[in-house]
């Protein structure tokens, strides 16, 4: 901008482009981690010297971190599986939304709206209590542990959101692409899989990653239905350490830190992808 102004003195009408709203202050993951660590330490130092017999909050975290991190890995596993399930189902539902059959489109619209507008926790409860703890098929009994049910519970809203993303992305492609494909004798299905969806991937990726970050953070809801993921384990560790009030902030702070360190890079990467695709 400034170089152009010094370059020539004639008034030039440039396209007005408002600066993108910067709602958030961007800090790198490393400073963020240090900041969180400091907060935890600040909360814990006050009680650090209370008694020699008691472990300091930091020692408690170090002592229990293998268990807590295993719990966190479980959160990630649940989030990845529900994302996988939800994406496959959501792609199907999204294609059904775009179907030429009015009935199929209407039914899938209802399904999408239902699962998009239901609170995740309520959906989770429904799946937990409606799905039996085991299924018997051909005389073999397959147990369905709670965490699998929770995964399905999270996959439902993911499915609806992915369906909406797929529908929106396909709709955003100019109709002339359909006409070109039609005039070349491609069937509707071929057009969808060979021409539409490959073009959509770029548009869908940032939105899809956004959904994933939300799912990853929401997996802690599974603690309410008794899945031993990180939050459940944190509560148990807290109880095992005698429920000392000064441990509350450091322990839950540790859980916060883990999720933050996991989700923040995803969001940064999403924002970067969004910016890159907007330029093209």
């Amino acid at each position: 901008m400034t170089t152009a102004e010094t370059g020539h003195r004639l008034a030039v009408l440039r396209p007005y482009r408002p600066a993108p709203a910067q709602m958030s202050v961007r800090i790198g993951p490393l400073p963020a981690a240090i900041l969180c660590f400091c907060v935890i330490m600040a909360a814990s130092t006050a009680w650090a010297q209370t008694g020699p017999a008691m472990l300091s909050p930091l020692q408690v975290i170090v002592k229990w971190s293998p268990l807590l991190l295993r719990g966190f890995a479980f959160n990630i596993l649940i989030s990845l599986l529900s994302m996988l399930l939800g994406t496959i189902a959501g792609l199907g539902l999204g294609l059904a939304l775009l179907s030429e059959s009015r009935l199929l489109a209407a039914v899938s619209w209802l399904v999408t709206q239902f699962f998009r507008n239901a609170p995740w926790l309520v959906l989770l409860f429904f799946v937990m209590f409606l799905v039996p703890f085991q299924v018997t098929m051909f005389k073999t009994t397959i147990p369905l542990p709670d965490w699998i049910k929770a995964t399905v519970g999270f996959a439902l809203p993911v499915m609806a959101n992915v369906a909406e993303v797929v529908r929106g992305a396909v709709r955003s492609i100019p109709s002339t692409q359909w006409e070109a494909a039609e005039s070349l004798s491609f069937t509707r299905r071929q057009t969808m899989w060979l021409i539409m969806l490959p073009q959509c991937i770029k548009r869908m990726l940032p939105l899809w990653m956004n959904i994933y970050a939300i799912v990853a953070m929401s997996t802690v809801l599974a603690s309410i239905v008794g899945v031993s993921e990180m939050l459940t384990l944190t509560a148990q560790v807290h109880a095992a350490e005698g429920g000392r009030p000064e441990l509350f902030a450091p322990l839950y702070g540790f859980a916060l830190l883990c999720f933050f360190l996991y989700c923040y890079p995803i969001n940064v990467w999403t924002a970067r992808l969004e910016r890159r695709f907007r330029v093209r």
């Binding site: 002339t176 692409q177 006409e179 070349l184 004798s185 491609f186 060979l194 021409i195």
Partner: peptide, 27 residues
Amino acid sequence: VGMVFQQYNLFPHKTALQNVMMAPIHV
């Protein structure tokens, strides 16, 4: 019947050669 449009309507995710090859292969 082949048709050519005002706005070209090439498939942007495919190269020129792939654009030409797609229909004979898949259709």
